[in-house]
């Protein structure tokens, strides 16, 4: 892995998202069938910072960071979708880009959840950032156990640490939400901050982006289903 590239990438992500005063939400929704197939939808909602995003998009760069144009964003998204389409086990890839409210959505079906790990590998190869080293999924249909493994990456934390204390606090409003829905009811789940829905079939985990960046929150979760 190219450490300098990864550091630069994280630095750019931190700095650009901090320009949005941290007001954004990332929602990841997984619908998992009993046989291990399902669908995933990832949504990045920057609507709360849309005034700033709109202003930033009119610039070609901010400081040392290049601001992508609408055309570039569309092209990058198209490329991402193509990579996803070419991943074995993935189908029905769709995406939307709302440049009025600044909401981006990417969704697909998967034959088995591990196909998402294949997608992460393909993306890692493309961007030379090892995503699979810190995020992966697995599901054992017969045992009814769903696992998500997450490992904190220190590079992101280092870049975050460069911001002033006041600016770090701006990330208080940035949220990461994971919703995992099953056909069977949930028996137990390991993560102490994750909640179970009334119908017992959905797990909801909401963490602040600031806690993820400071390694005070983790996304690792083991969910056991009632067989």
């Amino acid at each position: 892995m190219n450490k300098k590239y990864r550091t630069l990438l994280f630095g750019a992500i931190i700095s650009i998202t901090s320009l949005l005063t941290g007001c954004f939400e990332f929602v990841e929704k997984i619908d998992l069938q009993n046989n291990g197939s399902g669908a995933i939808t990832a949504t990045l909602n920057m609507s709360k910072s849309k005034t700033k995003v709109a202003s930033l998009m009119k610039l070609s760069s901010f400081g040392s960071f290049k601001i992508p144009s609408e055309t570039t964003v569309k092209a990058e998204m198209e490329e991402l979708a193509t990579t996803l389409k070419n991943t074995k086990g993935i189908s029905n890839v769709k995406y939307t880009l709302d440049f009025k409210n600044y909401i981006a959505t990417l969704s697909c079906n998967f034959a088995h959840i591990e196909a998402l790990n294949e997608f992460s590998k393909a993306l890692s190869k493309k961007t030379k950032v090892s995503i699979t080293s810190y995020n992966s999924y697995s599901f054992n249909p017969s045992a009814g156990v769903f696992k998500r493994n997450y490992t904190y990456t220190s590079d992101m934390g280092k870049e975050f640490g460069k911001l002033s204390n006041d600016d770090q606090q701006l990330f208080n409003d940035a949220i990461y939400t994971n919703i995992t829905r099953f056909e069977k009811s949930i028996k137990t789940q390991q993560h102490n901050q994750a909640k179970v829905s009334e119908d017992k079939k959905t797990s909801l985990l909401r963490v602040k982006a600031i806690d993820l960046l400071r390694n005070k929150a983790n996304l690792t979760n083991n969910i056991s289903l009632i067989n």
Binding site: E25, V27, N45, S47, K48, K50, T51, N101, I103, T177, I179, R181, K195, S197, E198, D199, K201, T202, L204
Partner: peptide
């Protein structure tokens, strides 16, 4: 006052888009 899109969750964590307002300085 500016409007933005947010999400509201029901008891089964199905979410719907809602429009909210917030104050901003420009």
């Amino acid at each position: 006052q500016t409007e933005y899109i947010d999400y509201e969750y029901d008891e089964n964590y199905d979410y719907t888009e809602v429009t909210k307002t917030k104050e901003e300085y420009i």
